[in-house]
Design a protein around this nucleic acid. Structure first.
Length: 829
RNA sequence: GCCUGGGUGGUGGAAUAGGUAGACACAAGGGACUUAAAAUCCCUUGGGGCUUGCCCCCGUGCGGGUUCGAUUCCCGCCCCAGGCACCA
């Protein structure tokens, strides 16, 4: 055995062994309990980064741990392989996205292999493979049939640089999430998935998903943004038609003095036609459309508007209300029109002050003597209260009045109670090349026609020339866009938009259960065995996007009959970022640590150990080169412990049940079993690998001490061997290569990964003497050692006999004595 | 503004059910081994005090409270990170 720990040959040896023996390949086994552990699959960007290393290390520990505990563990890996970076890189390097992608996959697969992860590679998926995306196209057809996929013209978020549409979730602070270009609004025909159809279920389930972090659920709830209110109709003064608004404050209707419409509101043009204000309105609309989304943010844009020249009537007061177009009203929320109550809404207040519009107070905030006077208001009073100056509703509480007023108007068919959501349908059309083709054709005669199921997949052509400006080549690639109409057989044009890549990642986890199945997207029996994933692990940055889409997609697949689960991921762990020098690792900050170099210098086990030890998984991890050194040092210390004593340890069996051990040796034995208990519980209950590792380190430290202090004790080696074997088995999910090697060195034939997880011995945990803390008035004053079976009374007696304690008590009266069994006594004087 | 987390040594972090605050590591300092260095091993390491004792006082963002006892629970405040934000 090598005297010095050199990871490279060991890691190569075991990785090869694991590969050759296909030890991590699993199959369905209904006799055993399954455990599906999944980490978010990576985008094949070129090489893995430390965030991946951390994510996949955490997952690997859990997978190996669960396997050793007897579960039938599915632990797959694959590639989120469609996406724009492939196109950009291809243009830049003069290559093809497919070539670029597959080369990256090959490189990254090897990187993952070198980290020793226990994946079942036979289930590997690349989403850009037609054998994968063909089923996605089938889902699209089924969704189209059932109305869950539809086409509409709407204003969409457009990134000029990426030359494509973005989903709302991909717009961050008004700029493109990928390239930071300000996003503009553009009207386009787009395909949408009707995620709003599931809005109630998506929201309700967040209330009962106990295995998910609270903050992710809260983020999703905020994103869905449920809001209960009323839809009210305001008849136009002209007598022709009316305008519908959404409001949560129908109780303030008597205070509504004007109406504000979004610039894109369909009635705007009609309202100003032929009026003196027409030119101003048109000009205003023009400017509003050009204004970038980020300028619409709070505070950044002053409230502005323009009178349309038309009026409507307040259905309660009969008062004439001027209709404005205002820059702060969003077409995409509610009805694109709001009733303005300047006394009780800050935005309306500012607008009214600016354009000198009437302010009418109709709510007296609770706890206030008098209602405010309109002319004295310096800001709107937005809180609930009691209605004033509101006809027959005067004196009612806001909450009750909100409903009463709506019901009153409902009788005249002017109102209804309703619920609004912030969540909007998911626009999935992308004007990109490297994505899943949308299986639709446009026929002059028949219109929009779905591709026949038997003609799937619509294969993305690989023989294209990429355009230098970044736009998609598909619309100019004749062999692709020329199609025959499935209905009439005539000439037709194929849809050249591709799907948002989030569609692929919305169902890949189900496909892992049967990646080779070619009779349909999902093999019922297998998918029912494995789904849902028991544990999903990934970055918090997907809290809304990927995780919400996946939840939606699973409901769709369930309703289409492909799946039986309601939610894809039973438990979710969101790991923190990897930080260096106070910043997230990034090329622009120049603080990236290359996993390849780390593996080369220290070995995979050291890198894994550091990732686990430096912080609990949900927290950010501060990368520290010295910390990595420390992890390497620990593994070297463990290596030495075995190799320096191998002859002595090999010649004995680990102690089983030990009588008559010296204090030191029974102490070590106790520590061994305490450690088994601690590591088991830290991994099983909390995923706190850092404290699990700390306790293993303590055990190693104690073994070294006892080796010294009990050098001549004949029972030393059996006890030491038990301790060392515990260290190896307990560490093996975290640092599998070194442990497998040491395990073999100690003479075991069976692989560690096939060795059952150890069970601690309750009897070994028990000490003969236990330490009791003695407090006087809550302050630590002494420590006493008592027999383990000492009663509270005994502890009290021994404590009062302690000279240090008697000194503290002196001649003062003992007022109270609190004893915490087997732990602590507090004497109050 | 609203909603989540969080604030503990020089640093990363422990303290899982209200019961020894600072486990485990990193860094720093001192020592041993060595011709020397590396590696390794041992000791010290929250602040202060003196009577140097396995002593005393202070200490978990700040101010209060509950309790025999609070890093942990409650109330008020400050700061940091993340999310949402002209959503009617």
């Amino acid at each position: 055995m090598e005297q010095k720990y050199s990871p490279k040959p060991i890691e190569n040896k075991w990785q090869k062994y694991w590969d050759d023996s296909r030890i991590f390949e699993v199959s369905e086994d209904t006799a055993r309990e399954k455990y599906y552990l999944l980490e978010m699959f990576p985008y094949p960007s070129g090489r893995i980064h430390m965030g991946h290393v951390r994510n996949y290390t955490i997952g690997d520990v859990v997978a190996r741990f669960m396997r050793m505990r007897g579960y039938n563990v599915l632990h797959p890996m694959g590639w989120d392989a469609f996406g724009m970076p492939a196109e950009n890189a291809a243009i830049k390097a003069g290559t093809h996205p497919a070539k670029w992608t597959y080369e990256n996959i090959a490189y990254m697969r090897n990187q993952l292999r070198q980290l020793g992860f226990s994946y079942d590679w036979s289930r590997e998926i690349a989403t850009c493979d037609p054998s994968y995306y063909r089923w996605e196209q089938l889902f699209f057809l089924k969704m189209y049939e059932s109305g869950l996929a539809y086409r509409k013209s709407s204003y969409v978020n457009w990134c000029a640089k990426c030359q494509t549409v973005l989903a709302n979730e991909q717009v961050e602070n008004g700029v493109c999430w990928r390239c930071d270009t300000p996003v503009i609004q553009k009207e386009m025909e787009q395909w949408f998935f009707r995620i709003t159809h599931y809005v109630d279920e998506l929201l309700e389930n967040t209330m009962k998903m106990e295995g998910w972090p609270e903050r992710v659920l809260v983020m999703q709830q905020n994103w869905i943004g449920k809001s209960t209110g009323s839809k009210l109709l305001f008849p136009l003064e002209s007598g022709e038609g009316s305008i519908q608004v959404f409001t949560t404050r129908a109780d303030t209707l008597f205070g509504a003095t004007f109406l504000s419409l979004a610039a894109e509101h369909p009635k705007v043009l009609e309202l100003c036609r032929g009026k003196a204000q027409e030119a101003d309105v048109l000009d205003f609309i023009q400017r509003a459309k050009q204004s970038k989304r980020n300028e619409r943010e709070a505070g950044m844009l002053e409230k502005e508007g323009v009178f349309t020249g038309s009026y409507c009537i307040n259905p309660m007061t009969g008062r004439k209300m001027p209709i404005f177009v205002a820059n702060f009203v969003l077409m995409a929320y509610g009805t694109g029109a709001v009733m303005a109550v300047p006394a009780h809404d800050q935005r309306d207040f500012e607008f009214a002050k600016k354009y000198d519009l009437p302010i009418q107070v109709v709510i007296k905030p609770s706890g206030q003597e008098q209602a405010a006077r309109a002319e004295e208001l310096t800001r709107a009073e937005e809180e609930y209260g009691v209605l004033v100056d509101s006809g027959e509703f005067t004196g009612m509480e806001s909450e009750a009045a909100r409903i009463a007023i709506t019901e009153f108007l409902a009788k005249k068919e002017l109102a209804e109670l309703t619920v609004q959501h912030r969540l909007r349908d998911w626009g999935i059309s992308r004007q990109r090349y490297w994505g899943t083709p949308i299986p639709m054709v446009y026929c002059e005669k028949c219109g929009v026609v779905p591709v026949a199921e038997k003609d799937l997949p619509v294969v993305l052509p690989l023989d294209v020339e990429l355009l230098a400006n970044g736009g998609s080549p598909l619309p100019v690639h004749k062999p692709f866009y020329l199609a025959t109409c499935p209905k009439c057989g005539g000439e037709a044009r194929r849809e050249t938009d591709t799907m948002d890549t989030f569609v692929e990642s919305s169902w890949y986890f189900a496909r892992y259960s049967c990646p080779d199945f070619d009779k349909g997207p999902l093999d019922k029996e297998r998918v029912e065995y494995w789904m849902p994933a028991d544990q999903y692990i990934g970055g918090i940055e997907h809290a809304v996007l990927h995780l919400l889409y996946s939840r939606f997609f699973v409901k769709v697949l369930r309703d289409l009959g492909y799946l039986k689960v309601d939610e894809p991921f039973k438990n979710l762990l969101t790991q923190g970022m990897v930080i260096k020098d106070g910043f997230k690792m990034s090329k622009s900050k120049g603080n990236v640590v290359d996993p390849d170099i780390m593996i080369k210098t220290y070995g995979a086990d050291t890198v894994r150990l550091f990732c686990l030890f430096a912080a609990p998984p949900e927290k950010d991890l501060d990368w520290s080169d010295q910390g990595v050194e420390g992890s390497f040092r620990f593994l070297s210390r463990l290596w030495r412990l075995v190799c320096e004593n191998i002859d002595k340890m090999k010649s004995v069996s680990p102690v089983g049940e030990a009588e008559n051990l010296s204090t030191e040796l029974s102490g070590l034995r106790r520590k061994t079993h305490q450690t088994i208990k601690k590591v088991t519980e830290d991994i099983r209950e909390r995923f706190h690998f850092n404290t699990a590792i700390a306790s293993v380190m303590e055990l190693v430290n104690q073994v070294y001490q006892v080796l010294e202090s009990s050098r001549n004790d004949p029972l030393l080696w059996p006890v030491a061997r038990e301790a060392v074997e515990a260290v190896i088995v307990l560490s093996s999910p975290m640092v599998p290569h070194i442990c497998e090697e040491l395990w073999q060195t100690l003479g075991h034939d069976r692989l560690l990964i096939d060795t059952p997880w150890p069970q601690w011995d309750e009897r070994a945990l028990k000490a003969e003497e236990i330490l009791i803390i003695v407090q006087v008035n809550g302050k630590l004053r002494s420590r006493i050692s008592v027999p383990a079976d000492a009663t509270d009374k005994d502890i009290e007696k021994i404590s009062f006999a302690d000279p240090r304690i008697t000194e503290f008590i002196g001649d003062k009266k003992v007022r109270k004595v609190v004893v915490v069994p087997k732990k602590l006594i507090n004497i109050v004087i």
